[in-house]
């Protein structure tokens, strides 16, 4: 990807409406990868693993572990997988880490760009659809084995309700009414959530169960990083509700994680 920037302010270029990706493309700056099937055989890129999200009475909680793996080895111990998308939504990523992080950055910029140009935020549905299109644009990479599957959640300001969306590799978008998980430990995390989930969970209960589900997944799945008390590495947890996006302080997650480990001993 080249880093050339226009030095002046081109006033007469065809306006790519309010889309930042359109703008990148008009400057030929959009991220592109040229990779043959043979390259993909030898390519080893770190993978982001387990993420999950669950709806509760007033919003959505999203939790992700911190481990990135490369084959059977640990590539990174402190990777961030859950990000704010804008003031009222959050996105979590699983799959090829490098591509996924770039996708998040582009998605964040896109939402902010639209908001500034139009003077209003995209609707939650609009954001979810846009992310679906971004996942679909990755399709050629999927055939090379480089998959990115995000989870997206946000607070629908029009309907006053928290919503959760999942995606498949070809950009299919599905709205979930309870919980979902993705990545290598996703199955275990879902199995855990299935046994504890209730629609009427309070914010606190949802947070506790989300953090516990990651720990449960780490019990079975080697690629999922459980609470690491020695190095003080804990899951990332965020919430989206009426007041917008907020991060759960690391202290709080650490406290919950210690309780969990204490229980299992």
């Amino acid at each position: 990807m080249s880093l050339d920037l226009p030095s002046g302010l081109p006033l007469n270029q065809p306006a790519p409406d309010a889309s930042f990706f359109g703008l990148l493309r008009s400057h030929d700056l959009q991220p592109t990868w040229e990779l043959g099937p043979a390259d993909a055989q030898t390519l080893r890129a770190p993978e982001a693993t387990t993420i999950l999200a669950l709806r509760y009475a007033d919003g959505v909680v999203m939790v992700g572990d911190r481990r990135a793996t490369e084959g059977h080895t640990i590539a990174h111990r402190r990777m961030q997988k859950v990000y704010p998308a804008d003031g009222f939504s959050a996105v979590a990523i699983a799959g090829t880490a490098g591509l996924a992080m770039e996708m998040v950055k582009l998605f964040q910029t896109e939402l902010e760009h639209y908001e500034k140009l139009e003077g209003a935020r995209l609707s939650l549905e609009g954001k979810a659809n846009h992310l679906a299109r971004m996942v679909r644009q990755q399709l050629p990479m999927v055939f090379q084995g480089l998959v990115v599957v995000p989870l997206f959640c946000g607070y629908d300001e029009a309907e006053s309700v928290g919503r959760l969306y999942t995606y498949d590799v070809v950009g299919g978008r599905y709205e979930e009414d309870d919980y979902s998980a993705s990545g290598s430990g996703g199955r275990e995390a879902k199995a855990y959530l299935r046994s504890v989930y209730r629609e009427s969970l309070s914010e606190e209960e949802a947070l506790i169960q989300g953090v516990a589900a990651i720990a449960a997944a780490a019990e079975q799945d080697t690629a999922t990083g459980g609470p690491d008390l020695r190095r003080e590495i804990y899951s990332t947890a965020v919430m989206v509700n009426r007041d917008g996006y907020s991060e759960v302080p690391e202290e709080r997650v650490a406290e919950l994680s210690r309780d969990l480990v204490g229980e299992s001993e």
Binding site: L9, L24, K116
Partner: peptide
Amino acid sequence: AGIRHADLKGY
């Protein structure tokens, strides 16, 4: 044009 300039640069 200013927003485009800034967002491109920041990205």
